[in-house]
Amino acid sequence: MNIFRLTGDLSHLAAIIILLLKIWKTRSCAGISGKSQILFALVFTTRYLDLFSSFISLYNTVMKVIYIMCAYATVYLIYGKFKATYDGNHDTFRVEFLLIPVVLLAVLINHAFAPMEILWTFSIYLESVAILPQLFMISKTGEAETITTHYLFFLGLYRTLYLFNWIWRFYFEGFFDLIAVVAGLVQTILYCDFFYLYITKVLKGKKLSLPA
């Protein structure tokens, strides 16, 4: 464990909690892409199946359980409790255009052609593009609630910090996982446009609205 990975995980946890609280407190999931949240639930489900097969640390197990519970709670709030506030007309990204290539990639490019390994690879590839429906929805509505931009900021920051974690682990532990690094780079690059808007607008107290 290193400071980049720890702050990355805490940033990820912060994003997940911010979103859950936003929906719960405002009793509304306006502006939130349910499709992205379903993809995140799928990412955690396929990646954390090893919860039952291997124990790494208490921290690892506790965080995985929290992530999975929050992901499904968020999906439930969007499609169940507060579905009346779900903006389906703007959440129209064709997720099959993500799932099919990700499945093909996971089967073709992985570390080992074993079920658990392919599921892990699928979850890594899927996570790198899972935010696209949310970003697409914001581009369609032309704006985002400020709390939603904070959610996106911490979510983007988490994988950016993981990039530094991988640099750290490469130099100090000789650890290197090309699949995770490449997918993490793609994931972080997808946030660059948002990061720019967040820093130049939201941090200056303005509302995030497009076109910039």
Partner: peptide, 10 residues
Amino acid sequence: ADELQEHDEL
């Protein structure tokens, strides 16, 4: 290859 070890990251 070392990445074949179990995935210890979240």
